[in-house]
Design a protein around this nucleic acid. Structure first.
Length: 571
RNA sequence: CGGGAUGUAGCACAGUUUGGUAGCGCGCAUCGUUCGGGACGAUGAGGUCGCAGGUUCAAGUCCUGUCAUCCCGACCA
């Protein structure tokens, strides 16, 4: 490819609306352009990278036995009604009607489609396991598209679905995909973690999010530097912290005027915050009052609370009336004396405290010397791990202190079990002649987001730093002055040789000044630059610059191709 | 959907307070000089000032409405 024929409009300045480094650089380097909020066009350079990422994904999927297919983007409402998700999915689904008024959606995901496809065709265990995947645009009408390709309304996704005859088979498929994903992101040159995730509404089974470590990421993860444990902050399991055993003292009510917050109570009674118990009151969709208790210095994890309470799907801040109905008042709640209107959930660590401070369920009063195991007397107490992880909490695997970081979720794997196969009555005949329901799994990768994450992770003040595997071109050959026919001919020769050797190479034959071309090279981020100048022409040599460390090397012209190939192996 | 902000040339922005001929830089085109890290000079093209209504002799500027974009929050199979 020659730069004079390449449509790669670079910009000196980034658009005001771009906030994220990767978004700015993709715009400036001429990789993408925006059409409307959350809708982007990929220009030639961006699309080349996307295609390379897709190819890596394809190879790894195929290696594991995946077979590529292509399903329609437009999906009939009936399928979604069958699974029950037509009503559930809400405004995030882009819906449309055809000329006859029949309802359709632009696919946000394809569980229904694939399940319907497979149930009609796969009738015997002999056809299993089956793994089918596709790469295509998905549509989600995000409440707030942002960060360029990170959260857009139309995006390219690879989605694979596995069908197995039993749970063991499903778990094997899961392991295969987990392994493939690790290989894919490694090949893309990304630093990532497979994070244990909450699989929320899907329910049951395993789930890992493949998260690229980057401070600008939207998800927060806890990870261990000593072992490979990593989990989203919502999911991270926590161990019980046992307080030091103390002589039990009798419980006592004390006056704590105007002490509505834990800080105020702590200061007023002059006790360490670790000796206090705080309450957070929620209500769910059915207006049930759910009161969560954690140690004063801990935070409540709403997801864990929801998981601990049967039937709770959403949590909201409770209103005063509900709290009053449970015989309590905001700011002074405790499990001691709450009536059965309240569902009480207590963090496991709270149960191990001695002589602690807790509310008294009346205004301006607290109990001191509360020992939960002895004193908690609410109707029903659920004890569970319900707190948010904090830096320094021990790793559940090896016990070392955990670190926290932010990350970009680029892929997710999870087991679905029979959720969709049951809803859509997708069955097969097993070896024993009995009809059985498929055990499914689904596995997604955000392709555009992977590109953005790669840029987010590797860039400097001059631009993008591509890893060789996903660079739009591996090498750029730059004659410093393309108006000089000798230089251009020399550069063209080298370009042809590299191309013949299978190198993905661009010739920057534009009649621009050297500075302009160099700036563009750095901005776009080709891993290697081969420079041709009067000097190299005269000495019969070439100069090679390595983008990521700025190193300049000189080689005899005859070695050019072999040196480029050697260097590329290290990038 | 709540809070905040912004819409003026391809990009970045000034002009709006106090109504009076639509501007600067970059980019783009032509010519000349220059030529290893975003050169210089000259000439030039490019705008219904987001859109719609209103006030006024006169609106980019004031008023009303509306649309879009961005940020924070809520939300996120």
């Amino acid at each position: 490819m020659k730069a004079t024929q390449l449509y790669a409009p670079t910009l000196r300045e980034s658009p005001a609306e771009a906030e994220l480094i990767s978004h700015k650089l993709m715009y400036r380097a001429g990789l993408i352009r925006k059409t409307a909020g959350g809708l982007y066009s990929y220009l030639p350079l961006g699309w080349r990278t996307i295609k390379k990422i897709m190819q890596i994904i394809r190879e790894e999927m195929d290696t594991k036995g995946g077979q590529e297919i292509m399903m329609p983007i437009v999906q009939p409402a009936e399928l979604w009604q069958e699974s029950g998700r037509w009503a559930v999915y809400g405004d995030e689904m882009m819906r449309l009607k055809d000329r006859h008024g029949r309802e359709f959606a632009l696919g946000p995901t394809h569980e229904e489609m694939i399940t319907s496809l497979v149930r009609d065709e796969v009738k015997s265990y002999k056809q299993l396991p089956l793994m089918l995947y596709q790469m295509q645009n998905k549509y989600r009408d995000e409440i707030r598209p942002r960060f360029g390709l990170m959260r857009s309304r139309e995006f390219i996704m690879k989605d694979l679905y596995s069908f197995d005859r039993d749970v063991d088979g499903m778990n094997i498929s899961y392991e295969k995909m987990y392994d493939a994903y690790s290989r894919i992101f490694t090949r893309c040159g990304l630093k990532f973690r497979a994070v244990e995730a909450d699989n929320g509404a899907i329910g049951g089974g395993h789930s890992h999010e493949f998260t690229v470590l980057a401070p600008s990421g939207e998800s927060s993860i806890a990870y261990c530097e000593s072992c490979d444990y990593a989990a989203s902050d919502e999911k991270a399991e926590l161990k019980v912290i046992h307080a030091e055993r103390e002589e039990l003292r009798p419980i006592e009510k004390v006056s704590t005027p105007d002490c509505h917050t834990i800080d105020a109570v702590k200061n007023f009674l002059n006790v360490p915050i670790e000796k206090t118990i705080k309450a957070v009151a929620f209500m769910d969709d059915d207006e049930r009052l759910i009161v969560a208790f954690v140690r004063g210095d801990h935070e409540v994890n709403e997801i864990k609370v929801m998981n601990a309470v049967d039937g709770a799907n959403h949590l909201y801040m409770a209103d005063e009336k509900l709290i009053a109905a449970a015989n309590s008042c905001a700011g002074f709640m405790s499990p001691i004396g709450l009536n059965d209107k309240a569902i009480v959930v207590v963090d496991q660590t709270v149960m191990e405290m001695y002589n602690a401070v807790a509310g008294a369920n009346e205004v301006d009063a607290h109990f001191i010397n509360v020992t939960p195991r002895r004193d908690f007397n609410a109707e029903k107490i659920t004890v569970a791990d319900i707190r948010m992880i904090q830096v320094g909490d021990p790793c559940p695997h090896c016990g070392k202190p955990l670190s926290m970081t932010r990350g970009i979720e680029v892929g997710q794997v999870f087991t679905l079990g029979k959720k969709y196969s049951e809803a859509l009555h997708a069955t097969f005949l097993d070896e024993d002649g009995k009809e059985k329901t498929f055990e499914m799994g689904c596995y997604g990768i955000g392709v555009g987001r992977t590109m953005a994450a790669a840029i987010e992770q590797r860039n400097d003040k001059d631009g993008i730093i591509w890893t060789r595997a996903i660079a739009p071109f591996e090498v750029v050959v730059v004659p410093v002055n393309a108006k000089d026919a000798n230089q251009l001919a020399y550069a063209e020769k080298i370009y042809e040789e590299l191309k013949a050797a299978g190198v993905d190479v661009l010739l920057d034959d534009r009649k621009e000044r050297a500075g302009v071309k160099f700036k563009d090279c750095d901005l776009i981020g080709y891993p290697l630059r081969v420079t041709i100048s009067p000097k190299t022409l005269e000495s019969g040599s070439v100069e090679i610059k390595i983008r990521h460390n700025g190193e300049m090397l000189n080689f005899d012209r005859s070695e050019c191709v072999s040196k480029v190939i050697d260097l590329l192996k290290t990038l």
